[in-house]
Design a protein around this nucleic acid. Structure first.
Length: 343
DNA sequence: AAGTTGTCCAACCGCATGATG
DNA sequence: ACATCATGCGGTTGGACAACT
């Protein structure tokens, strides 16, 4: 029944390959071809298992391996493909001639992943980060405390403080109109509640506060009365006006195509829609064209209108800000210089 | 100069899948 | 049908090296 075991691999060498071993492997394959990896080491005079030989050949000795650092184009292609394929490194590698799946995987984990995290983008989902620590960093950068009990000044917050809270909340809401909302609400609403109504939902939700003897530090001042509009109206109208749109209104400049996309999103933002972020310039391959096509089709059918494309997001946040000096830049600068990535 | 910490990447491990006897 | 093998894939590790203190 079945195949008989071929060799005893208990005493095979492991660890780094020596130049001599490399030479033996290359010499054998150049003369005889690969054959079966299991029998190759014996025939080649190598005290290695077939798996190790295969790995060494595929990742290092293969003549068509491309050496040197990945180019920006390759990096962008990896990001684009990863947004479509996920951690399918071998599939991604097929679109990058001369690059191995291992190399791409390593590059992703050591370089790209960090870049994305630093930009506030979740490398796994290609969406803005939703993790609690990152949101807390954002809030801290905006000079807010999420827990009014530990922040006496929070109770004396002024209109600016409210605006900050609302700006952040709306930014988060626009970033991801589904799962993020509930999380951001959990974080921001207590502060807003305290600020607006003299109550805070931390008390209600946190078992630590439930039935506790903590005195309510609120004074009963209700600053919401100061606004004729709801806070949401206030920020949604002014948040974007303060950025790209406002700049365009004042400059009356011809709007570049990317910015037009963003303006379209502003029109759509009543429904919390962001623009379909386009795949930007990168080397085209047949494989990639198919993937992009599938991806676009998937985008049309998916419930969430939010794109996963990193470059377009980056463009959205950075490049248009350079032209407009919008509010995005301030926030992004803060996050990129001070917020530490969460591993 | 020495020790510590961080980064990079080659190589290994375990698992899944398809092929084979 | 089943056991075993061969291969490929993705996650993880560990060592070499660099940067920092």
């Amino acid at each position: 029944m079945g195949r008989s075991p071929c060799s005893n691999e208990s005493n095979v060498k492991k660890g780094p390959w020596t130049p001599e071993e490399d030479e033996k492997l290359m010499d054998y394959i150049s003369k005889h071809g690969r054959g079966t990896w299991r029998t190759l080491p014996k025939h080649a005079g190598l005290n290695r298992n077939g798996k190790s030989c295969r790995l060494r050949w595929e990742n290092y000795l293969r003549p068509d391996i491309k050496r040197g650092k990945l180019t920006e184009e390759e990096e962008q292609l990896i990001i684009n493909l990863h947004s479509v394929l996920g951690n399918k490194w071998s599939k991604i590698a097929t679109s990058l001639p001369g690059r191995t799946d291992n190399e791409i995987k390593n590059y992703w984990n050591t370089t790209i992943r960090k870049k994305l995290l630093h930009m506030g983008i979740d490398p796994d989902t290609h969406r803005p980060r939703t993790d609690l620590n990152h949101l807390m960093n954002l809030s801290q950068l905006l000079g807010m405390s999420m827990n009014p009990w530990t922040n006496p000044t929070g109770l004396q917050a002024d209109v600016t403080q409210l605006a900050k809270l609302q700006v952040l909340q709306n930014m988060l809401q626009l970033m991801n109109n589904t799962s993020l909302i509930s999380m951001s609400n959990q974080i921001l609403n207590p502060a807003l509640d305290t600020f607006l109504n003299g109550t805070n939902t931390f008390q209600a939700r946190d078992p630590m506060f439930r039935g506790s003897e903590y005195p309510n530090p609120t004074t009963g001042n209700n600053i919401a009365d100061l606004f004729s509009q709801t806070p949401s109206d206030y920020s949604q109208q002014n948040f974007f006006k303060s950025g790209i749109e406002k700049e365009n209104e004042t400059n009356h400049q011809e709007v570049p195509s990317d910015t037009q996309n963003i303006n379209t999103s502003q029109q759509n933002q009543a429904e919390n829609l962001l623009p379909p972020l386009v795949v930007a310039s990168c080397p085209r391959t047949t494989t990639f064209d198919k993937m992009e096509s599938n991806y676009n089709a998937a985008q049309k059918s998916t419930e969430s209108p939010f794109s996963t494309n990193f470059e377009a997001w980056e463009k959205f946040l950075i490049e248009d800000d350079e032209a407009s000096g919008s509010y995005w830049k301030e926030i992004l600068d803060l996050t990129s210089t001070s917020a530490s990535p969460v591993s």
